[in-house]
Nucleic acid binder design. Structure first.
Lengths: 234, 234
DNA sequence: CGAATAGTGTCTCTGAGACATTATAGG
DNA sequence: CCTATAATGTCTCAGAGACACTATTCG
């Protein structure tokens, strides 16, 4: 059986290549994504085709900015899958776009076809699986088939990388308080964290630099603002 | 700028889709991969084109068995990248195939164009980066451009998933001793581990079942054989 | 001064490394 | 009885949770 494949190099099947982008941020302490409100009243991830001369990342960035202009975002490739159809195969490559702070506010003000949805993770830890989506008001929503799996993979990846890489900082503005950082971690992990232990752990990593500045506008003791340093671990 | 992309759905660019498979195992306590010895005297990963009607995983399995018939293997997708050329873009999707025990022995006996190379990881922990490859004798080898990065990503992924998922067990036969399991972990992590602590940690996970059987052929106290249980975490 | 949150000191508990000791096979 | 390794008991230390306490800003 194996000999039928040997010797002659195989020719690749030309396939359609699409990029799906998950614009993700933390809104009101909950993971949230922007979905496009297509004609068929179904919500779907921003998706577009790969064009000539593009790398995957540049295509993902272009599609993100075209369909959900969030400004700066940190892009990370999630995974790829094929949907084999009769005669013609389509490849989809999923990316996560981590959007800092309130980067969703501007594209949502842009009006039109973007919808903010909250992501609920029904599994604990690194178990994995699908996620539930609902409106900020709490109403459950239906997704295009497959998108719930992609979102689940995205949450799983974030949880796994959160404490040894800098992904958490991609969801924060350049200057942030330790409380904001803890809120991001709690939103992604889906658990409450201990404040002193969290502070110690973060500061001991050596990734943070105190700026000496303080937050403003609070009616209580203002927290110090920190910057993210580490160029390590992506 | 963003308006030029709105409204009309974009057509995907048809692209060549290739699958590259990394057949990986632990040989003599060191991570090792099988490379194909191409015509140009350069070593390259087994690679082939996606064919009509295939999923990515079934294509990876077919290409693996065609070019490196290792028998059973656990497949995991690594990442995808595009190589944009003038006019025509090629997509490559990299897979890791974890081969249990001495699964490399049979394909290597098959003679021909397969070469066993050892993988050296010059970075510690989860830092990431390229890896070095050499013959089992210790002679450095040159790789096709890009393959060193793919191998580095594979080692990084394995290190990251080792202690919360079952990937380590995919490199062992169905029945194994705790010492063999520790050898696999030490090979992937590149560090020596403490024996009592490693045993405690593994047994406390609840993933292992003692079979009551013992290893044979040793001239000392035979170790108990265990089985992998957990259906959790992939 | 009161309210609310920032930031810290301390106790405890758990998990892992270090090390020594016991157990069991073959020769 | 010797050797080599399996398997385990115990001490110690580091990291994290729990909790209380102090510090600082606004009104």
């Amino acid at each position: 059986m194996q000999d039928m494949f040997k010797g002659a190099p195989m020719s690749s099947l030309p396939a359609e290549v699409d990029i799906a982008v998950i614009p993700m941020s933390i809104v009101d302490g909950v993971p949230a994504v922007l979905l496009a409100n297509g004609a068929g009243a179904e919500l779907a991830l921003p998706t577009g085709g790969l064009m000539a001369g593009e790398t995957l990342e540049s295509a993902a960035l272009r599609i993100l900015q075209a369909q959900a202009p969030v400004g700066a975002a940190y892009l990370e490739q999630l995974y790829s899958f094929a949907t084999p159809a009769a005669g013609r195969t389509a490849i989809t490559i999923a990316y996560v776009a981590l959007v800092p702070g309130d980067g969703f506010a501007a594209p949502l003000r842009g009006g039109e076809q973007l919808v903010l949805v909250e992501v609920g993770v029904p599994w604990a830890g690194e178990a994995g699986g699908r996620v539930d989506v609902c409106t900020p008001g709490g109403e459950p929503l239906a997704l295009v088939a497959g998108d719930a799996d992609i979102l689940g993979q995205a949450m799983l990846r974030l949880r796994g990388k959160l404490d040894y890489s800098g992904v958490g900082f991609a969801l924060l503005p350049g200057r942030f308080t330790l409380r904001q950082l803890q809120d991001v971690h709690e939103a992604i992990l889906g658990v409450r964290l201990n404040k002193p232990a969290f502070r110690r752990r973060m500061l001991d990593k050596g990734w943070l630099e105190a700026t000496g500045e303080r937050e403003t506008g609070a009616s209580f003791r203002p927290a110090e603002l920190y910057r993210f340093l580490a160029p390590k671990g992506a």
